[in-house]
């Protein structure tokens, strides 16, 4: 279990700076797919990080929302990574990223239907069985909707958690991005999600693309967390109590001190939000 503290996505570029000062960061998260090589610098750095900090392994390639089953060979490599580092958390996305034998390297959207609900639950059952642990499932940032998507996203996530026993990774930026893009209310989205299922929070930055009817928000992980996302996060923590909270910044990396400042801002909100219920994860 991750501590209810701010964490930061680990980047090799920051390794030396982290060794100087961890800046109050309580855990680190890595993308599983960047550590599936056999050895070398990535594993030397990750082993050093893991010796001093709790670690979350975050998968981006299991294609949980795909129709073709979970890639057994890839899942086995992820299993061996988890056995090697014994992370405090493993999480993946409600999305698909492979089609047939081909990997598309993006988190693609799926309609929420009875069919996809069954598919996603089957895949999570498989992942949890092979990894021998409970996983967290992350809500996506989306740019389109589907006419046949009849189950609300919050209901879909809750139902998956109920059927499989998995927890949820609440990406507050994704909630904001999707709701703004689809003209819905992010606070209503949050109100519909059972927060006791949430085992981790993600906070990232987004970009905006001008469209005829207003901005389309893009989940870029290349900017500071936006003010309305901080406000949503404060609402989550007020209701749920402190949760492990990750600052996600994957592109156009800033200095380590900038990430520490973002983490400190999250930490201040976590410290104020001690009145929520205790969450089980």
């Amino acid at each position: 279990m991750l501590p209810a503290l701010p964490g930061v996505g680990f980047k090799p570029e920051h390794f030396a700076a982290i060794c100087q000062t961890a800046g109050g960061v309580g855990f680190f998260e890595i993308h599983a797919e960047n550590y599936l090589g056999a050895g070398g610098l990535p594993h030397a750095q990750l082993a050093a990080i893991r010796a001093d900090f709790p670690v979350s392994i975050h998968g981006v390639g299991l294609s949980i929302g795909g129709a073709n089953g979970v890639d057994a060979a890839h899942l086995d490599r992820v299993r061996r990574l988890c056995e090697r580092y014994e992370p405090q958390s493993f999480s993946e996305h409600l999305a698909w990223s492979s089609h047939g034998a081909e990997y598309l390297n993006d988190l693609l959207p799926l309609p929420y239907t009875e069919e996809t609900l069954t598919i996603v639950c089957d895949h999570i059952d498989r992942v949890q069985e092979v990894l021998g642990r409970r996983m967290l499932l992350e809500n996506p940032a989306t740019y389109l909707c589907f006419a046949n998507s009849l189950i609300p996203e919050t209901e879909f996530l809750s139902e998956v958690a109920q059927r499989t026993g998995c927890g949820l990774l609440l990406d507050v930026n994704n909630v904001f991005v999707s709701c703004i893009n689809h003209g819905t209310d992010p606070y209503a989205w949050l109100a519909a999600l059972p927060l006791d299922l949430v085992g981790e929070v993600h906070l990232g930055g987004h970009d905006a693309d001008e469209m005829p009817t207003g901005n389309l928000l893009i989940d870029s992980h290349a900017a500071p967390v936006a003010d309305p996302v901080w406000a949503l996060f404060a609402e989550v923590i007020m209701r749920a109590g402190p949760l492990p909270t990750l600052i996600e910044w994957d592109n156009d990396l800033p200095e380590w001190s900038v990430l520490c400042a973002e983490a400190a801002r999250a930490g201040a909100i976590l410290a104020r939000g001690g009145n929520g219920f205790a969450h089980a994860c």
């Binding site: 390297n105 993006d106 740019y143 909707c145 589907f146 006419a147 893009n181 469209m211 009817t213 389309l216």
Partner: peptide, 24 residues
């Protein structure tokens, strides 16, 4: 069956996914 707040934007919104795949 793709939908957007404004249906005229569907093509440009889909282009975000096309762009993400190609650029990444």
């Amino acid at each position: 069956g793709l939908q957007a707040r404004n249906m005229a934007e569907v093509e440009r919104r889909f282009a975000v996914y096309r762009n993400n795949v190609a650029v990444s």
